[in-house]
Design a protein around this nucleic acid. Structure first.
Lengths: 187, 187
DNA sequence: GTCTATATCAAGATAGAC
DNA sequence: GTCTATCTTGATATAGAC
């Protein structure tokens, strides 16, 4: 059952969003799937293997949402908003972005997973930068700002907001998205 | 030796900045101090007790840097910049803010520590909000923005930047601080 | 106050039956 | 492909000697 593998990876990502790479265990996964730890080890011999599968899947998801936005007929402004919303709102209010979670656990990650999370982060930044540049070209954003700097600032503030939301409550994300909008809109 | 206690707490904070609450162990601490695990347990019977001492110390540090800024003769603009710099630059480039680290590990924290990290986060936000409001009063920042929203956006972006810096390298923080400055300066 | 020694437990991991 | 059973390791934690 090749579907089991996907099921395990998806669950692992969920757990990483909730408690992080170090804190989640094969026991967590096996209990939620109603099987034994050993059967998880059958699909992913070592936690490191599961970690690689997780980051590969994150890469894939990012590429997919990149594609769906590139093919969208919306304006640059719409696309940018769409992407930010998409990134921010796919999480429950006690969850954070899995990229942030793995960045936080960076020191404890197997080195292959460390490299993969670097790859994911760079792709994410590249996508955001393209969207910003596009919006600048359409004169929706101030062209005197550096696209790269704007992109990393947007990403940082959204990811940071998800962290604060955990303890300060749900408004935090809305507040930051709103303020970000105001910053970007200004001439 | 009451100094040992402080030494342990400081080291714990350092480790939390490097690998997080879940990942650091009494063994890490005892090795770095050249004593045994058991002697750490003498000072802090349970990890939870150390966690409480850590968050209490974080609260204290925040209050101290708050005082030093309040008593500073600098302009509101200077104070704001100073506080942001202070918060951002006290970390090595592979470290993140201990508040972010504990927010990430939130689900795994003992409930007393969960409450404490909420307290710390709220104080941090209150301080930032006061500094923003002061800068608005002096007409350095746009008064049409909501001080609360600006404050949480600044905090989120700085904390997020520290996460990305880990994998993307040192410029990230400089880029975000720079862009934040541009956002804030605009009329 | 720091030590040795040890208990306990959970996690990652493996072997081999079905 | 999933199971039971087992091993190893590392972490939290405790008891008691010095």
């Amino acid at each position: 059952m090749e579907n089991r593998k996907k099921q395990i990876v998806d669950l692992a990502i969920k757990l990483i969003q909730q408690k992080g790479y170090v804190a989640f265990s094969y026991d967590d996964i096996s209990k939620q799937l109603g099987v034994t730890k050993a059967s998880i080890h059958y699909h992913f011999e070592k936690k490191e293997d599961l970690g690689v599968a997780v980051t590969d899947r994150m890469l894939l998801r990012l590429q997919e949402s990149l594609m769906s936005i590139k093919n969208s007929p919306a304006s640059a402004e719409e696309k940018l908003k769409q992407f930010i919303q998409q990134q921010a709102q796919r999480f429950e209010c006690t969850e954070i972005c899995p990229i942030s979670s793995l960045q936080t656990d960076y020191e404890s990650l197997p080195s292959i997973v460390q490299e993969k999370i670097g790859e994911v982060s760079r792709l994410e930044l590249r996508v955001m930068k393209e969207l910003v540049a596009e919006a600048q070209a359409e004169n929706i954003l101030n062209s005197s700002d550096d696209a790269h700097q704007v992109a990393i600032t947007i990403l940082s503030s959204v990811k940071g907001a998800l962290l604060y939301r955990r303890v300060l409550g749900d408004d935090v994300l809305a507040d930051v998205l709103n303020q970000l909008n105001r910053f970007l809109k200004k001439p």
